[in-house]
């Protein structure tokens, strides 16, 4: 599956790019699978996703839980806990 990944805040800084198109292997089914897969792509990804349990994932601009599937995603946002307001 081909998806657009968008990164924000310190996740973006550590991966060192704001977004990318990436081909995901079929073994990546849930948001948790995605984070664990990305962690294997290099040092920056590993630093950004060292503690995947704190990372938030949004599919097509809506929050999802880590055990939810990412099937049908056009855009997946990956970012730290939010600190606005």
């Amino acid at each position: 599956m081909m998806v657009k990944l968008v990164y924000f805040a310190w996740v973006r800084e550590r991966i060192d790019k704001p977004e990318e198109e990436i081909e995901l292997p079929d073994s990546v089914v849930t948001a948790r699978d995605l984070l664990n897969y990305l962690k294997t792509l290099g040092e920056g990804y590993e630093a950004a996703l060292q503690y995947p349990e704190v990372i938030r994932v949004a599919v097509n601009q809506e929050h999802i839980d880590h055990d939810e599937p990412i099937a049908g995603a056009r855009e997946i946002g990956i970012f730290p806990p939010m600190t606005g307001g």
Binding site: H63, M82, T83, G84, G85
Partner: peptide, 22 residues
């Protein structure tokens, strides 16, 4: 809004350095 709206704050410090993400 504080816990679910995707905004993040980064500190810029008076001494010219970039501080931490809140």
């Amino acid at each position: 809004l504080k816990t679910a709206a995707p905004f993040w704050k980064k500190e810029h410090l008076a001494d010219g350095s970039t501080g931490f993400w809140v």
